[in-house]
Design a protein around this nucleic acid. Sequence first.
DNA 1: TTCTAATGTCGCAAACATACGTCATTAATT
DNA 2: AATTAATGACGTATGTTTGCGACATTAGAA
Lengths: 120, 120
Amino acid sequence: MFATLEIRNGELMKKLELFEEKQQELASLAKALSHPARIAILQFLAATPTCISGDISDYLPLSRTTVSQHLKELKSIGLIQGDVEGLKVKYCLNKAGIEKLKNGFGELFEEITPIENKTC
Amino acid sequence: MFATLEIRNGELMKKLELFEEKQQELASLAKALSHPARIAILQFLAATPTCISGDISDYLPLSRTTVSQHLKELKSIGLIQGDVEGLKVKYCLNKAGIEKLKNGFGELFEEITPIENKTC
DNA sequence: TTCTAATGTCGCAAACATACGTCATTAATT
DNA sequence: AATTAATGACGTATGTTTGCGACATTAGAA
């Protein structure tokens, strides 16, 4: 994961040869949120009192096909689940996935807090 | 922004004709984080005790050119700033932008909390 | 003023994302 | 068994992102 160590500012700094697992996972999660349709879908699912079946595209400015693809993406990264019930599919937020999202970004956000009295 | 109101589950539901401003802004911020290099750059900037000048690509598995583009992207969305100082450019996290990021996602994350005893 | 070093910009190729019409699958209904 | 309705999968056109070498620009040094 790391390569040669070099010296800079008197400290050891690592050169990444590849991005770290965590960075890649966060990037994937961010990518899942990087389209307004997918944000809207998550909000929509959160706002409905029951898991939803039926055409979510009725509520979005996109075709059913396109919404279906966004649903698939959100599902594949684990942010939502789609439980088949007969002919219909009930979509819901996936609690575990949402947790992972919040924790992952929570950690990142703590990490990237700007230092108060930085000497620039 | 909204179109016809329809009835579903006894509640009024809106159909978006366009995604909302906020959804689009969040999506843009998410997109900025949707590449491991950009996550790594933010972490790197946060971790250095001073604003950094010099070749950040020394610490990443990418060419200087490519890193430069990622820096430009992060700058254009306001997550970092690059202050020219003579021949060098000192890169730093942009406090206001990072704040906006945290607040935006903080709100979204609250909004998309799965309901505990949802009838699925 | 010429040279060098730090950095940004351009332009291309390859990969990936988006949107959507059409088709396939499957569950219930008749 | 045939029909209908809900949904996902496929194919494809178009646009966007990524990565990078080569070139441009600029500040300071010689």
